[in-house]
Amino acid sequence: MRRQILPALAVFLFFTVLVGAVYPLAVTSVARIAFPSKSQGSLVREGGVVVGSRLLGQAFSAPRYFQPRPSAAGTGYDGAASAASNLGPTNPVLLKSVRERVASYRRFNGLSASTKVPVDAITASGSGLDSEISPANARLQAPRVARARGLALAQVLTLVRENTHGRSLGFLGEPGVNVLELNLALDKGK
């Protein structure tokens, strides 16, 4: 057995250099040159200041902004603490907060008590950093945003459409609306 320790150490060190340093640094170099923005986190800048990443959701609460999904990352959209709620489907804590979110979603958006609420609006995402909401959720929020900004509903709905992406390659995953980009587009339109 003692004769095995030397090869074990040598092979281990060889690969620590090869796949622990050469490989990741080679990928880093290629990515930095080929995808300069994406490799750094798809950062969004306004007037030279980083305001977020187009891939990461962030908290909005004012009526004039579209609202993201509930978030279980830290106190909400904490980029240093991505997390899901991990509440089971029959957990009373989950069902209670869903009831509260449904009621407050209808109240905030001036919807009737019989309006069916899109499921993404009242559930927390897997990462707590979901940048998107469903198109149905965005359409239900649009009248409120239009009122708060004094805009025509059609104008807001046009912006929603422009910031909706379809399924990847037309058939992968689900369509979604990027909340940060939509809200920035609204602010620019003013």
Partner: peptide, 23 residues
């Protein structure tokens, strides 16, 4: 249980919008 509260859609607790239930 969630749909009975007046919610429409698949099980999205813990899921990302870009993937949805099937993915």
């Amino acid at each position: 249980r969630i749909q009975a509260i007046g919610v429409v859609g698949s099980n999205m607790e813990g899921k990302e919008v870009r993937f949805g239930a099937p993915a």
